[in-house]
Design a protein around this nucleic acid. Sequence first.
DNA 1: GTTGGCACTCGGTAGCATCGAGTGCCAGAT
DNA 2: ATCTGGCACTCGATGCTACCGAGTGCCAAC
Lengths: 336, 336
Amino acid sequence: MLDERKASILRAVVEEYIQTAQPVGSGHVANAPGITVSSATVRNEMAALEGEGYLTQPHTSAGRIPTEKGYREFVDALSAPSLDRSAAQKVKSFFDQAHGEIEQMLADTTRLLAGLTDSAAVVVGPPREVARVKTVQLVSLTPSLVLFVAVMGNGSIEKRTIELGISVSEDGLHRGASLLSEALVGQPISALSLVGSAVHAEGPTEVDLVVSAVREAFRVAPLDDSDHVFVGGASQMVSAFDAVETVRSVLTILEQQLVVVTLLRDVMDRGLNVAIGSETGMQPLEQCALVVAPYTVDGEQVGTVGVLGPARMNYPQALAAVAVVGKRLGNRLSEG
Amino acid sequence: MLDERKASILRAVVEEYIQTAQPVGSGHVANAPGITVSSATVRNEMAALEGEGYLTQPHTSAGRIPTEKGYREFVDALSAPSLDRSAAQKVKSFFDQAHGEIEQMLADTTRLLAGLTDSAAVVVGPPREVARVKTVQLVSLTPSLVLFVAVMGNGSIEKRTIELGISVSEDGLHRGASLLSEALVGQPISALSLVGSAVHAEGPTEVDLVVSAVREAFRVAPLDDSDHVFVGGASQMVSAFDAVETVRSVLTILEQQLVVVTLLRDVMDRGLNVAIGSETGMQPLEQCALVVAPYTVDGEQVGTVGVLGPARMNYPQALAAVAVVGKRLGNRLSEG
DNA sequence: GTTGGCACTCGGTAGCATCGAGTGCCAGAT
DNA sequence: ATCTGGCACTCGATGCTACCGAGTGCCAAC
């Protein structure tokens, strides 16, 4: 596609632009390491690169900045980047010291990633639908208020406050719980909708009432994945753009957890590990780039870590950080 | 303290400055409703107000802007403000339709508040220490990995993944659970540290091992309140200040959940419902103001709702919003 | 005590010249 | 045939000046 020289000129432009955020001129490129030709030659090549859509000029007589296509080419040409010593050390010690519940750890991981990359970071946990119910419990909070608690095989918990119209005996609750337990254990929680209430000649019993109240609660408000998303370092985006409007719209996106999950899933589904500008599929992220990596627990892919920054982000750094953190996070979760 | 006329001039200045974010001059004040004197008189009074520290000038020959003291006076002089019709309607319909778990509802509440006030909103849940354990459960995830689950009387759940060195029999887990249950039910979870392991002549049993592993887990990483804080609408702060640095530092604060809880608690403890600038006790919030209101469940104060915005926020609006939302939230939580 | 008038201040904006980083192109060197 | 140095040109950024106008403080008159 691009000959060797064009490629290295493009690389030099992207690298300098990432550092300075200023349009880069032929002079700078000519001085860049790895460039042995004069600025005039660089100019010719840059004009060609512009014609092919890799670079653009903010205005005549300014330097060039990479287009989306330019970043894409740059990223595709990157060979597996590795993390610098001190960053790698930081990651290691983070996971050595990590403690607390999974949720806490995932949240802390976003902070780690954000710190490593000076961008916003996102960690998405495993989708809830895949986890299997391990135990079911009904705990009475007040006479007519019951808490449904399901412990899932992966250590997460689903709970629901259930409002019963009437007060139900302890015995009724116990029998309801064992009925639910029987039907749900080993199944994903969505199996709840299949639990039928037995129809008795004498009309609905206490137990039926309990079971159908639980079923109803999950029907009205089904599980969504929004509380399995953790976002950190959003404040880093403030200085990423100079247009306040851009900043605001990006932050607004990050506040919508469901949107964030969808975004990450979507990018992963397309088999990308970097989505640049419009590749994210979200108009407000036109000027952003997203770098993602999956993490696996016991060989199974359960979640995603990602970094969101300006399109002119430090891709090598971000790619390395995401890869390493994803790997280490997976290991950490696998071991316990 | 301030005579009638000075007070109304101060009020006029604050109100206009809140609207326009521009220094306000004597001319505008003279034209404000409720002001019957000429601009010259206003000038004299404003000079006096400046002398007394209620107003300040960004530079000679500019209008005045309120100082912290000025805002304070303004707020103190406010009589219980009420919410406008459409906002009140919005709050009502929000709580009528609210569903899902408490956590979800609190998170949504921050969005409601943020929407009402165009500021960032914070909701703090009840401190975890006060809740009493209702049931205790140990669920085995893998042979040597156990999940400790405590359902609390207020419907919240504490869980902990416990790494046992060795694999423990189902029976051992059950007996451990009932031991823990016996010791903890009716107590706050901190009582865990008091659970002693019986010392047997034959050395520690399986049960002792389980119990002490649980105790150890909570000793290493004690409960903190950070996951009982919900922040919403942080993106609103982007346009609140024109100094990017200010925005960043404020957002950074909002990202630190523990800091936010402490901040709110601290303000409430001082008996304030508005903290302006340095009254917040946090240097980065110098230019902000915080408006808070408690909410009660069954007559007991369990949490706080708050709004964080620029010092020139719309206080009447914010005060009314937090009051109404706090009230309604309390009611909603009391009923189920 | 209040007010209109007045001189003064000073940030903001518009106009203008200048500067310089950058470009495209061409003619000569390799 | 390709690269390079040179050159004329472009155009945003910077700095200067003039000016406008919102606002002030003060004073004399009502």
